[in-house]
Amino acid sequence: MTINESAQGVVEEFWMFDDWMDKYAYLIELGKDLPVIDSQFKTNNHLISGCQSRVWLHAEEQEGQIVFTADSDAVITKGIVSLLIRILSNHTPQEILEADFSFLESIGLQEHLSPTRANGLASMIKQIQLYARAFQLKSNQL
């Protein structure tokens, strides 16, 4: 499945929710189900900086594709990062760098993109793109 197709899938899932409570209950559920990051990666090196909630993000390459794992001490944040991982994990650096994130607006999460939400989507996306760029540089050098 392409990134666009998974994103479209998420958008359709969110369209089912009539009110915000169902949407957030779903995010909380996703957060609770997020596969636990290997504890060796829950270090300051993997921390996305901010002061509201802590998010750890780890990336590794498997056969040319990037696999992300993450954790957060806030469950809604965990749900959001889990959504991103579901859509972006198991894709090549090039695909990730070309990804269109406008689907976030369709699911009503754009408020988490504001610059003041230091730990919100904006910094997670930036970190994901940094990982993709780093892996791309590495493979170009080989």
């Binding site: 957030y24 909380i28 509201q52 909630s53 806030a74 469950v75 809604i76 944040t77 730990n119």
Partner: peptide, 12 residues
Amino acid sequence: VHPYDLGTLLDQ
């Protein structure tokens, strides 16, 4: 419960 989660839901 993390304060940020509560703040987010209260905001809603």
